[in-house]
Design a protein around this nucleic acid. Sequence first.
DNA 1: TCCAACCTGAATCGGATCTTCCGGTTCCGC
DNA 2: GCGGAACCGGAAGATCCGATTCAGGTTGGA
Lengths: 177, 177
Amino acid sequence: MRADAQRNRERILTCALDLFAARGPGVSMEDIARAAGLGIGTLYRHFPDRRALVEEIAADALRGLGAEIRRLSAQELPRWDVLTQVAAYCTGQPLALIKSVGDDGLAPPERAPLQDEVDGLLRGLAEQAQREGTVRRDISPADVVEILSTAVCRPGARPDDPVTRVMLDGLRATADA
Amino acid sequence: MRADAQRNRERILTCALDLFAARGPGVSMEDIARAAGLGIGTLYRHFPDRRALVEEIAADALRGLGAEIRRLSAQELPRWDVLTQVAAYCTGQPLALIKSVGDDGLAPPERAPLQDEVDGLLRGLAEQAQREGTVRRDISPADVVEILSTAVCRPGARPDDPVTRVMLDGLRATADA
DNA sequence: TCCAACCTGAATCGGATCTTCCGGTTCCGC
DNA sequence: GCGGAACCGGAAGATCCGATTCAGGTTGGA
């Protein structure tokens, strides 16, 4: 692939992500092409249809998240800290976006394995945190993951905003549980 | 209004709500008409366009919620219990739906007053609960409302599921806060 | 009985996605 | 530098799908 084509492809992914984040999943292909400073034909050369574009963005984000989870997990930290750092990473990511775009009716065919992998990593972390005693044990690891995901996939979520804080506090183990 | 017209109007509202709940905000007008056992033309006689239909459903739901909040508030209960009962009521309601439908790009012109009123009631409750000492004081009443709303507007939220429980626990006042 | 109010659903409108295509432009090996 | 393969631009048109309209049949109820 020629260098300029490579550049353009990345430009498209970046701009599409920005537009989705700014204006929701309904952005038209033409707007995406315009934002990237390219013709509509070029957009379709790189991605045969809208679905392919969305899937690529989603896959990139999931791969990034997976890598980050592995990186943080490898550190010598309490699992609780790892979980909160993963959460912090997520608030800066367009994961909420991916969730909502996926709801559009676009089934996740090739995304599923990635999604499952990330879910597995997160559940593993959650379970370790429960064993370590920092996360309450009266809920399942899957529940922990869902709560984290809910906290982090809100529009405008930030790592240290009150809402995120409260949800994380709810997860902590308490004396009586 | 003729009796059959009245009946049909209500049928439409009911079926539309069910469909939105089951299949998301993207349901077509035609499907709604079919579900109600009516022609598409009839649907448009009662609601000039999709927006009008959605607004009517939303207004109904908000009016119902407002009434319920007032009813529960009038009881001689700790405000915390009132809050949790309001939350429980919401999990049985299509409020999540309304939120997501509203995001579609349909601005809320006549819905705003209703929404503001409900928000005001909820914030008032939250503040009283904070004064009463059952809700933590290190966040604003608006944050409390947002957390409640997040907890309750999840797809599949139930009053007693683990996720709802954890989020409510996060709101409780603790010895150290 | 009668008719205004109702209902129906095929046809129309509108807007977005997707496809095509060819002249012009740009990279990159030589 | 040169040449050509790989790219790009963007107008034009096919297609799809949901929203909306309307001419004509149906029905509640006085």
